[in-house]
Amino acid sequence: MLERDIRPFTTGRKAWLFSDSVAGAKASAIIYSLMLTCRACNVEPYTYLLRVLTELPQRGADADISDLLPFNVATPPDVLLTFP
Rank of each mutant, 00 (worst) to 15 (best):
M1K: 12
M1H: 15
L2R: 13
L2F: 12
R4A: 15
I6R: 13
R7W: 15
R7C: 08
P8E: 03
P8K: 08
F9P: 01
T10I: 14
T10Q: 12
T10Y: 12
T10H: 13
T11A: 10
G12W: 05
G12P: 00
K14L: 09
A15W: 06
W16E: 15
L17M: 12
S19G: 06
D20Y: 07
S21C: 13
V22H: 10
V22G: 02
V22S: 06
A25Q: 01
K26Q: 14
K26P: 00
Y32E: 03
T37S: 08
R39W: 01
A40Q: 15
E44R: 09
P45H: 01
T47G: 12
Y48A: 08
Y48V: 09
R51F: 04
R51Y: 01
V52D: 03
L53N: 10
L53E: 05
L53I: 06
T54R: 14
T54P: 03
L56V: 14
P57F: 11
Q58F: 11
R59N: 00
A61Q: 08
D64N: 11
D64E: 13
D64K: 03
S66Q: 15
D67C: 03
L68G: 01
L69S: 09
P70R: 00
F71W: 14
F71A: 07
N72Q: 04
V73W: 00
T75G: 03
P77R: 07
L80Y: 09
L81T: 09
T82E: 10
T82D: 07
